[in-house]
Amino acid sequence: MDIIQTLLNAGLFNDKKVVQRHQFIKTKGETDIHIYFIESGSVRIFMMDEDEERTIRFGYSGNIIVSLDSFLSGKPSDFYIQAIKKTEVRIASKNDFYQFIQSNEEHLKLWILVLEDLVLQQLEREKDLLINSPQERLERVLKRSPKLFQEIPHKYIANYLRMSPETLSRLKKS
């Protein structure tokens, strides 16, 4: 059984919420005390850099998302989590989640696997940002997330890849 299915079967994600397109699940300055499972729809996690949005992550059906910095530290975050389209999420509280992972060794091992995966994803993201070639950044992301273009509008993907929508369109055609 995979990690997400184990978490869902544990009964942690009891609350449900429908978030309309462009509505926020979390905004800058809030402390995130929840973890979210996306049943349908898609979201982006971003921050503001001066007057520009910087997308750092996407989530879509079957993903777990969280403002991890805030969730772990208990402090407000600079990140926003916004629905890209109508999105249904199931919500688990930090308290319930921590009780679950501390209830036995297998649950704790699951949490360690989740954290390890998140660290590896973040390292891949950092590599993407260090690569100068827009074509290579696109190829890396497509290899990691082949479903991305079915789930996320191109303008957000372009922002994530640090390129203009026109550049992304041209690269996809070539």
Rank of each mutant, 00 (worst) to 15 (best):
E39M: 00
I112G: 07
L12H: 03
Q23I: 03
D69H: 12
K28F: 01
Q121F: 06
D32F: 00
S93L: 09
I157L: 07
V43G: 05
A158C: 12
D49A: 06
A83W: 08
E106T: 14
S77Q: 04
F37K: 08
D96V: 00
S40Y: 13
M48F: 11
E139H: 09
L161K: 10
F13I: 02
I131G: 06
M1G: 04
M163H: 13
R144N: 11
E139T: 04
L138S: 06
I35P: 13
K172V: 12
D2P: 15
S164T: 15
R125A: 02
V141R: 08
P76C: 02
R162H: 07
M163V: 15
A10F: 00
L171N: 06
G59H: 10
T167R: 04
V141E: 01
K86V: 05
F58L: 03
L142Y: 00
I64V: 14
P76G: 01
N95M: 03
S40L: 01
D51T: 15
V66I: 06
D49T: 01
E139W: 01
V66F: 02
S145G: 01
L129F: 12
F24V: 02
R140M: 12
F58K: 01
M47A: 02
Q121I: 06
L113V: 00
R140W: 01
L168K: 02
E116R: 09
T6D: 09
F37I: 02
I38W: 04
D32K: 11
L161T: 11
N9P: 02
G74I: 10
E151C: 11
R137I: 04
F71K: 12
R144H: 10
N63C: 12
R44C: 12
Y80C: 02
F46I: 04
A10E: 03
D128V: 14
G59M: 08
Q99F: 07
R90C: 02
V89M: 05
D78W: 00
I101E: 03
V119D: 07
D15E: 13
E105Y: 14
K16A: 05
E105W: 07
Q102R: 15
W111E: 08
K172R: 14
F46S: 04
T6Q: 15
V89D: 02
L129C: 04
N95S: 07
R137V: 03
I112K: 13
F97Q: 06
S61N: 05
R170V: 06
R21Y: 00
E105D: 14
R90N: 11
L120K: 14
K155R: 15
K75I: 00
A158W: 11
L138N: 01
Y98N: 12
D15V: 10
E88I: 15
